[in-house]
């Protein structure tokens, strides 16, 4: 579904990614792990075209999106749940959700289906986004991404600042998306949370891919896990 091949990305003249490659299959959950500043968010931004990859290629559903405009990439079926949710604070929840609505080649989600997953949203529709709690904002951000009918959702630090119960709910949603055939890339500081939901793992270190493989292979080797993710569990 998504193939990232040897991309180099920069912020100004500072290189943030060095020949990073990864791939995601339909319905697969890929955990993207690494320390602060490893380049995880930059990978997501490069896929979305927000931080352009100067070298390498990014293909989605077989088509190159390396040079595509961000809105074209989104319309191709890539959704984004940013780490700080990035809702429009002065708009109501209903308006924020309506901004995400679009049709793609993938399964369309109705507002009814989304509010069935996130039941509290039914009662929050008229509230302005700036009045929501962190967990409520995360619900809106995920719901907004789903209403965009994605084939792949990029989750950036979905557990950040949330209570453990809400983190469990978010991970349950990612599992539900997998059952619906929707792929996810989950960027996480909390490795155990990500490994609990992922099929495969890519570990980044200082902009390089340090390790890539199945979750089972990583968890079966405590020494390797400690070496790669020492401070992240």
């Amino acid at each position: 579904m998504l193939d990232v091949s040897s991309i180099d990305s920069f912020y100004g003249e500072t290189q943030a990614l060095f020949s990073v490659s990864l791939s995601v299959r339909a319905g697969e959950v890929l955990a993207l792990l690494g320390a602060n500043g490893a380049g995880k968010t930059t990978v997501l931004r490069s896929i979305l075209g927000l931080t352009r990859a100067r070298r390498g290629d990014i293909r989605f559903q077989g088509k190159s999106i390396t040079a595509s405009a961000t809105h074209h990439i989104a319309c191709a079926g890539i959704g984004w749940v940013p780490d700080d949710r990035r809702l429009c604070p002065t708009l109501t929840v209903a308006k924020n959700l309506s901004l995400g609505e679009k049709r793609t080649a993938f399964r369309a989600w109705s507002l009814g289906e989304v509010t069935e997953i996130f039941t509290p949203l039914k009662y929050l529709m008229a509230r302005e986004a700036e009045t929501l709690s962190g967990g409520e904002m995360q619900m809106v951000a995920i719901a907004r991404a789903l209403l965009g009918s994605p084939g792949l959702v990029l989750f950036d630090e979905p557990s950040q600042g949330l209570a453990p119960k809400i983190v469990d709910d978010v991970m349950a949603v990612i599992r539900r998306l997998r059952q619906a055939g929707i792929a996810s890339i989950v960027v996480e500081q909390n490795a155990d949370v990500a490994l609990g939901v992922a099929d495969r793992v890519v570990v980044l270190s200082q902009g390089h891919v340090a390790w890539a493989g199945d979750v089972a292979a990583l968890t079966a080797d405590p020494g390797l896990k400690r070496k790669l993710l020492g401070g992240l569990s």
């Binding site: 984004w80 940013p82 429009c88 002065t90 308006k95 309506s98």
Partner: peptide
């Protein structure tokens, strides 16, 4: 919805594009 797009775009132009809005 156009008005919502304008408000959202004024607040955060990146997220508006990432939602598929030109």
């Amino acid at each position: 919805r156009f008005g919502a797009m304008v408000k959202a775009g004024a607040h955060d132009s990146e997220i508006v594009q990432a939602l598929g809005i030109d």
